[in-house]
Nucleic acid binder design. Sequence first.
DNA 1: TTAATATTTTAGATTTGTCTAAAATATTAT
DNA 2: ATAATATTTTAGACAAATCTAAAATATTAA
Lengths: 224, 224
Amino acid sequence: MIANLSVTEENYIKAIYHLQHADGNVSTNEVAEMLHTKAASVTDMLKKLKVKKIVNYEKYKGFTLSTVGEKIALTIVRKHRLWEYFLVEKLQFGWDEVHEVAEELEHISSRKLVEKLDTFLQYPKFDPHGDPIPDINGKMVIQPQINLTDLPLNVIAEVTAVGSQSTELLELLRHKKIAIGTKVNLKKKFLFDNSVEIKILNQAAFTISQQLAQALFVKKIPNA
Amino acid sequence: MIANLSVTEENYIKAIYHLQHADGNVSTNEVAEMLHTKAASVTDMLKKLKVKKIVNYEKYKGFTLSTVGEKIALTIVRKHRLWEYFLVEKLQFGWDEVHEVAEELEHISSRKLVEKLDTFLQYPKFDPHGDPIPDINGKMVIQPQINLTDLPLNVIAEVTAVGSQSTELLELLRHKKIAIGTKVNLKKKFLFDNSVEIKILNQAAFTISQQLAQALFVKKIPNA
DNA sequence: TTAATATTTTAGATTTGTCTAAAATATTAT
DNA sequence: ATAATATTTTAGACAAATCTAAAATATTAA
């Protein structure tokens, strides 16, 4: 029922999925940039994916995934996040090392493998970066998470996700000792550069940049 | 130091490796048959692999892997067999289901992944089919194993490996309740069709074909 | 609303891995 | 040793995924 797709096709589908969930309608240039390729290549692939009924596409008008395309994207995201969980929890990788390896593993086709892996891992709901793992039907837990910059002052919250998997961000977070589950507390907002001062248990308060603050998603702790 | 290779190139290298360890010098047609492709395609690939110094090849003369080629082949075989072990021991796959999945997993490039997987699995020495797993340097345990057909009558031996990973063979073995570690005992050889009668503990003796007997490798049990 | 700019698509070329059909070489059988 | 057969290689073509440069369309700014 789900067509046989090349690794390249799957990468396009995943890119469109992520862009459309950030943005709505997706443009050729956005996809080209995300995949480090050229707009002309994207147009070529869109024609192929349109024939396969995976995207809704009219030329010059932007595009989105079809219902089928969205389902395919969710199976790829599911595989990616399950493998990341496996790499960190079972193989002792650092959370900042797993993204690239998972980019390869997510294209292994065996459905049975994914389900057995899920069972082995005991059905995790979130990957090591705090992103929800879709279940076999594509459903995932929606966490009521807000951006750190929107947290009221002096309210203790827990880091639940990070905005990207870039090595640069993850390296910085490791250095600052911020991880999924870390409890933070907003002390002050500086309007000059939108940097914010935060406090972590057992550490002196320190200031982080606007860029970093915006990459941190948190959940208020119910009884705090 | 080890070049970046495409999945296709890796598959050719692996095919040549297996043929050369069964046969010595390898021929174009043998490779074509193993990879379900045509002789002309094999010739094209040989030219590429010769430029990369992975094969020793003179046209019309057959070929073998170079020292470098052999090393590459061993890393692929290592990955294949480690993943098979993982699939059977951790994910509860049947030993007859893992070959195809491992054919995909063996092409994941991360060296760190292989080493961490090896550690996680506690450095297994044999895969689920009884084949030895090369270590990080390409070294593997050589088992003093003989073919079942060469076992003297009434000597108890243990099945240590099977001759191929084909679904057909593994299905038959499952049906006959023969697996790695099963203790067998040769009762009679029939010269008419080279079939042999064997006995397994707690089972009535039964006859197996020449083809099946030749696919079973055994080790005499030291004190029996 | 038209001109300037930005985005997207098309046309044509390139690379990788494949194929068929024909030519070249090797092997075998007489 | 030569003829018949089998194997291997070459030549030329094709599909997938990519690219550059140019053309088509859309957006924005005056």
